[in-house]
Design a protein around this nucleic acid. Sequence first.
DNA 1: TTCTTATTTCGCAAAAATACGAAATATATT
DNA 2: AATATATTTCGTATTTTTGCGAAATAAGAA
Lengths: 112, 112
Amino acid sequence: MAIAKTMLFNDELQKNAELFKALAHPARLAILKYLAETRTCINGDFAYELPLSRTTVNQHLTELKNAGLILWHTSGVKTYYCLNQKKISELGEIAKALIDELTIPEDTCCQP
Amino acid sequence: MAIAKTMLFNDELQKNAELFKALAHPARLAILKYLAETRTCINGDFAYELPLSRTTVNQHLTELKNAGLILWHTSGVKTYYCLNQKKISELGEIAKALIDELTIPEDTCCQP
DNA sequence: TTCTTATTTCGCAAAAATACGAAATATATT
DNA sequence: AATATATTTCGTATTTTTGCGAAATAAGAA
């Protein structure tokens, strides 16, 4: 791409694109759903639930951490992860706002 | 990555991840918003609204087409684009379902 | 037919994402 | 201290995404 151009767009667009990017891989969606289903902090054993190596799962977890969608704490050698409900609801609001913004009267558009 | 592993996840996860991926770039969000604001089919002139070349904008448009989020028709040499309201509302439902699924009682998780 | 305009396709290059094994790190147990 | 276990970091390889200029294509105008 020669030069990354994403930073030429306004902050809100960049921020929202980043958040959607965190959801743009089935492994990350699977991790989030698993965390919601188990309803508890679980340690990294759940790598075995996914068809990926422990290292790769850890990489996806790091991306979810960076996006703010999950929280974690450690106890001994183990790390416990959980959903960040605050960020999940923020995501919900962002998604809803986008959909509302994109929803327009159908008859104004592309009528042949 | 050696081998693409996305196909090892179930269809729904893959489909949803694909849809979020379409939203995972500020240029594509900008295009969608512009289409909503102008409320009409516009031709490719709006490449000049973005800090990207005509070719790159066309590439992003193709991705939005492939995701089903926009429709288009041609008239002479010009191509007119518009939002696919049906897909937008489908996106809204998918996003809402995901948020609902990920929303759990806060006190069950990561309390130190 | 030739010229102009709009768009798409092609080929290429750079950046980012995905994936994993090996090694390093950190904690708990023996 | 030595061992076992859990996780993270490092190095590397491959794929995908992003980006663009040049050429090709297509339609209308002169």
